[in-house]
Nucleic acid binder design. Structure first.
Lengths: 349, 349
DNA sequence: CTGTTAGCGCCTTCAA
DNA sequence: TTGAAGGCGCTAACAG
């Protein structure tokens, strides 16, 4: 009568608890706990284990992660903080993470507004879940300061991050340099850059590396030739339409874009402006979206191995969760330029 | 000494508990709870409330959702089960959901493998979190049976679902009919259909509606003219390449695609096959991805208002969480055909 | 108005 | 090998 009959909050159809299973199997809750968590080896008799398993099945019991988390002080949740799921790129990152975390941890995504790290209140809510670990895409410095050292955390796509924080980056700088080199090789001498207006660090790196490399290769990029828009095809299209007349007058013949989404916007605008790509303007992007190979012209872009980013990050997190230190603490994955029609005058597309 | 000094699991830097705040403010934990949850109106003296607030700030306390959930029997979590985040379409759905759930609930995404509802074990894990409610995209019947009636749930994009389950659908059938009508109006008499191989119901509806409407409009679609591939540009491209020779011989001049991703695959393949679209083959898709307007040719497609789907679903869930019954229980949002270059012989793109 | 108390469901010593 | 018991942090009843 102590706890078997009480109806509690009454509403729900009485959830199955370990106590019920214990009673049903004629053992104690401790035994149920052991069996349910696969820790029964050598600690529970075969007979009892068998009984418990049957009861679990019959009653449809499953461990309540709330109670479990409270008792253990930590959940088996891994939260992936995702500031930009609209980017198809991101789906691959997730696939990579899933392939590693598999069944041991429960992966959940916390989505924030486009390109923004979680607010302080969102962060608190996440922490309130007592996740076992965090995977954070393009974290802001503020965000990291707010939680770092509190729990296992791996940053993804966070160039320039504190070297003490485990991270997996992509060598976007090299990719940007490759773009500049490619433009130079094609004989371009005046270029522009369409940046993303969200403040993510990786985007700043792309821009700066491009500008520096362009300079090196003797390509002129006037300050007025750097524009920006949100990561959104329509926004990029509008931004380009607005700037093109000026750029054209300045003799710009090549355009670097912060993302393929931007490049799509440029393609879109160019059609309306009657501007032919790549003949009048060579365009290159970043990310190699699945759509980038099939547009017309297809888009020259920097390919980033998104799935591998997710995989490596998850591996590092696992190490952390196992109490080890990831080795190496930070990894930078290579990027590679994929040359396609949008920068090749003599190609079909 | 009772609970203040114990080091517990030792590892973490001792989380701030309500008990600490209570002690610091010289009140009981109950008072802290009331204040922290904004339920202090008329139940806590102004002086105490003030004291508690200060202590909360000083100590950096925040409500532990684990403890809270355990005590209340339910969390403030809303889990969105997402079988296909790789589809850019989905980002908009999320935006819609977020706009409604805002700060009252915590939205978390549970990602499954492409196009598949969560497995039984994944489902149990989700249930173990004791979410306040569930939003499920394209749920399978199995999945619904496993959890329905256990907790508030709204299905998204689930045509043909049990009419007793709250749901928000899109009128994809009308969209498919519009495609067929459009083909007929363009004078096509033989068509093919490139289906998606994932078993989602919405895709079956698209296919069947298209086939039925085609028949009605006097367009012949031979059984051999229905192929399928995964929702993936590359896979669709391969599938089309394989089938095109046969279809061509059969006199097929129009192709309906289950998704825009498929259509992209077809565009890709057509370029390699030297097949010109729309002159030799008219192609239409579904979803109106942001990229679909900027491909070449741009893609004729059925536009679905993704954001609104998310918004409406979240509204229904809110009603459920407030103990009301959503009205109406199920909503079907209209879809509309967007005619673009891929089906217009005389257009530029 | 405020504090005390009794669990929520589970896991983990500690004895037996 | 097993059971009893305490406590994780919080909230809702119930006394004061």
């Amino acid at each position: 009568m102590k706890n078997g009959e009480k109806s509690g909050n009454s509403r729900a159809p009485r959830r199955v608890t370990a106590a019920m299973v214990a009673e049903h199997a004629g053992v104690s809750t401790a035994t149920v706990s052991l069996v349910a968590n696969g820790k029964s080896a050598g600690r529970v008799s075969a007979a009892n284990e068998q009984r418990v398993r049957e009861s679990i099945r019959e009653l449809g019991y499953f461990v309540d992660s709330i109670g479990s988390s409270l008792a253990k002080g930590v959940s088996s949740l891994v939260v992936l903080v995702a500031p930009d799921i609209s980017n198809p790129f991101f789906a691959k990152v997730i696939a990579g993470v899933r392939s590693v975390l598999a069944s041991d941890y429960q992966l959940l995504l916390s989505v924030t507004d486009a390109g923004v790290s979680p607010s302080a209140s969102e962060t608190r809510k996440i922490m309130g879940l007592r996740p076992a670990g965090l995977l954070v895409h393009a974290p802001s410095q503020d965000f990291l300061e707010e939680i770092s050292s509190t729990l296992p955390l791996v940053a993804l796509d966070a160039p320039g991050i504190d070297p003490a924080i485990p991270a997996v980056n992509m060598d976007v700088a090299q990719g940007a340099r490759d773009v500049a080199a490619h433009f130079a090789a094609q004989g371009h001498t005046r270029a522009a850059y369409l940046d993303a207006s969200t403040g993510t660090e990786t985007l700043a790196v792309r821009r700066e590396a491009f500008l520096a490399a362009a300079k090196e290769y003797g390509i002129e990029v006037l300050p007025a030739s750097v524009a920006s828009s949100m990561i959104d095809v329509a926004a990029a299209s509008a931004a380009f339409s607005q700037h093109w007349p000026t750029w054209r007058e300045a003799g710009v013949t090549a355009l670097g874009c912060a993302t393929d989404n931007h490049a799509f916007g440029v393609l879109h605008a160019s059609r309306q402006l009657g501007l032919s790509i790549p003949q009048q303007l060579a365009v290159a992007g970043f990310d190699d979206l699945p759509y980038s190979a099939t547009s017309n012209p297809s888009i020259t872009t920097v390919e980033l191995n998104a799935q591998e980013v997710g995989r490596q990050a998850a591996l590092k997190l696992r190490a952390l969760l196992d109490g080890k230190s990831p080795d190496p603490l930070q990894t930078t994955l290579p990027s590679s330029l994929v040359v396609r029609g949008s920068t090749l005058e003599n190609a079909g597309g």
